[in-house]
């Protein structure tokens, strides 16, 4: 599996956590903002396991990630053996890749950061543009429904005319107590369901109550899904700017 893609996915998921757990209730925008503050730490450190499931096979990748807002990021692949030690550094729009086997730092083209992630069922656009979830959509409360045994607000989100959004519509189920996104349905412009994302296994992670497992299931692909499991998560641990350096990318363990 292409490790560059794993990087992209992780990057998007990382940025996406804010979006996933943003909230919406009586007044959509106020609550989304409040949840952003709750869930988007200034810094975050995570260990995660990603599993790509296909009808005939599945593959796991283990990752450690460090991030400061959406500006600085460092990702280390810790498993499987084949890709272990490979690391990625991101500073704003620049990305470097460290390949320990050939002792070389490779600068990656910006197009790699923008493209969608084909290997798994996550796509970039839905996750990266998290800030637009507040500003680029109009929100309507449709009612209350239960997801995974939790009472949720069901909200319909329609993008504004001029918004750079790939989706035609998003339906989102938000836990009414913890404001977690328990289920999200992504529709295309012709109102066909494309992906469904589930938040599962709610746990206290990094002092916050969050789904520890994210699952994306494409609507049209039988037996396909991608699972991300957070093994550990820490927020707001002070991190130096120098942590996000080429030197540290080679040494981080």
């Amino acid at each position: 599996m292409n490790v560059k893609k794993i990087f992209l996915l992780t990057l998007t998921c990382f940025l996406g956590t804010g979006f996933l757990f943003s909230q919406e209730s009586l007044d959509a925008k106020t609550i989304v903002n409040r949840s952003d503050e709750k869930l988007n730490g200034k810094t975050s450190i995570a260990e995660m396991k990603m599993t790509i499931v296909r009808p005939a096979w599945q593959r796991e990748v283990l990752l450690k990630t460090w991030g400061v807002e959406d500006k600085l990021g460092l990702i280390l692949i810790t498993g499987p053996a084949r890709d272990k030690g490979t690391a990625f550094l991101r500073r704003e729009k620049e990305i470097w890749n460290w390949q320990p086997s050939i002792d070389r730092v490779i600068k990656l083209p910006p197009s790699m950061m923008m493209q969608s992630w084909m290997g798994s069922d996550f796509t970039n656009d839905d996750l990266v543009k998290q800030s637009s979830m507040v500003d680029d959509y109009s929100h309507e409360l449709l009612g209350k429904e239960e997801v995974e045994g939790r009472a949720c607000y069901k909200i319909e989100m329609i993008p504004h005319e001029d918004a750079a959004v790939v989706w035609g519509k998003i339906l989102i189920w938000i836990d009414s107590e913890e404001y977690m996104q328990m289920k999200v349905e992504f529709y295309d412009e012709d109102d066909y369901l494309v992906n469904t994302m589930y938040g599962k296994n709610v746990k206290v992670l990094g002092g916050k109550t969050l789904p520890s497992v994210l699952e994306v299931i494409p609507a049209e692909e039988e037996g396909h899904k991608t699972i991300i499991e957070y093994l550990s998560l820490q927020f707001d641990k002070p991190m130096k700017d120098s942590f996000f350096s080429v030197q540290n990318m080679k040494r981080v363990r």
């Binding site: 500073r91 470097w96 086997s101 050939i102 002792d103 700017d241 120098s242 996000f244 350096s245 080429v246 030197q247």
Partner: peptide
């Protein structure tokens, strides 16, 4: 892919992130 090594001494100092 690892390519051959050189018998050498290498001293490096880093400044800033890259």
């Amino acid at each position: 892919e690892e390519r051959p090594g050189s018998d050498a001494l290498r001293v490096r100092k880093y400044f800033g992130f890259a």
